[in-house]
């Protein structure tokens, strides 16, 4: 029996299929490129070609695009990233106490006690130190992002970079480049600055207890891992499927949801051939002026978001109930 998990994030859309024994059968890492519908459809198309006929017992979604993805595929569970990451990590290792998760645009810390989340925090007003920023710097330095971490490890010396704000960090890096420091030292300095920023901003007031899992796309960066270990003074673990943990969590949550409900709502891989469209408009019904988005599949509305009073989304649910 197989379970599907989809994590629609700001930068990447991850799809995963796992079996009953938690074995990862397939993982797909696609770029969202600001078009979550396309990314999900593209992912399903790849899965359809490879695994047509496979039975999906449950499907779950997570990430910032979890609601739209859930509407598209008919998910059994829609969960926030924090819970999804925690569930996945605990499934792999019961002894995890802290999760450092750095994704495309947000970073999180999750602490756990007795096998449940006890506290968490997300970056609040600033995205300095997240994946997008590292991506951009790699691009500016003409270094492939995959090799960024190796450069940092080569450095013998670290240069202090102002990491409080992404824009200032960038100007500080340019300044240091112009002073003649070499690339690897600057990259190491950047990793150190980002870790410092993470620990004083996101991790403020949170106890980082071992064992620590480092998850999210940025965990691929060896320089960041080393900088964290250096700052914390102990080893941190990058799990095998570090960039898929959200999707794995979603699949696991869906699995238990279906155990309760009995059957899955997943619409199947054929969705890849449906025509999806999203239309947004400002509702003029009252002074709240909600921005409403409507998702249309083959000319039939299947989902509505953003209306506070539920005028559109409830209407949809009623018609759904009538159909059943």
């Amino acid at each position: 029996m197989n379970y599907l998990g989809i994590d629609v994030g700001s930068v990447s859309t991850d799809l995963i299929i796992i079996d009953d024994n938690m074995k990862v059968i397939e993982k797909l890492y696609l770029k969202t490129k600001g078009k979550p519908i396309n990314a999900v459809q593209q992912g399903l198309k790849i899965l359809k070609n490879k695994y047509d006929g496979i039975e999906i017992k449950a499907a779950g979604t997570t990430g910032s695009g979890r609601n739209i993805a859930s509407t598209l595929i008919g998910a059994d569970a829609v969960k926030n990233e924090i819970t999804a990451h925690a569930i996945a990590a605990l499934q792999f290792d019961k002894n995890v106490r802290t999760i450092i998760e750095i994704g495309g645009q947000d970073s999180k810390i999750i602490t756990m006690k007795n096998g449940v989340v006890s506290d968490f925090a997300m970056n609040t007003v600033c995205a300095a130190g997240t994946g997008s920023f590292l991506d951009r710097q790699a691009e500016r330095l003409c270094i492939p992002i995959e090799e960024f971490g190796d450069y940092a490890l080569k450095a013998t010396n670290s240069i202090r970079i102002a990491g409080r704000c992404a824009v200032f960090a960038e100007s500080d890096m340019i300044h240091k480049q112009q002073l003649g420091y070499n690339e690897s030292e600057i990259i190491k300095g950047l990793c150190d600055a980002l870790v410092r920023n993470y620990l004083t901003n996101v991790g403020k007031g949170k106890e980082i207890v071992q064992k620590v899992f480092f998850q999210g796309g940025v965990a691929a960066n060896k320089g960041m891992k080393a900088a964290f270990e250096n700052a914390l003074g102990f080893e941190i673990v990058v799990p095998e499927h570090y960039n898929m943990m959200g999707a794995i969590g979603a699949a696991l949550i869906a699995k238990s949801a279906v155990k309760k409900s009995g059957s899955t709502k997943f619409k199947g891989f054929d969705l890849a051939n449906s025509l999806f469209e999203s239309k947004s408009f400002e509702c003029e019904g009252c002074s709240n002026k909600c921005e409403v988005v409507r998702i249309i599949e083959n000319e039939a509305a299947i989902g509505c978001f953003g209306d506070r009073c539920g005028k559109y989304s409830n209407a949809l649910q009623v018609s759904e109930n009538l159909l059943v």
Binding site: N80, S118, F120
Partner: peptide, 10 residues
Amino acid sequence: VTRIEAFVDL
């Protein structure tokens, strides 16, 4: 919303 949901979950 993510934070609120996660807190309720917690």
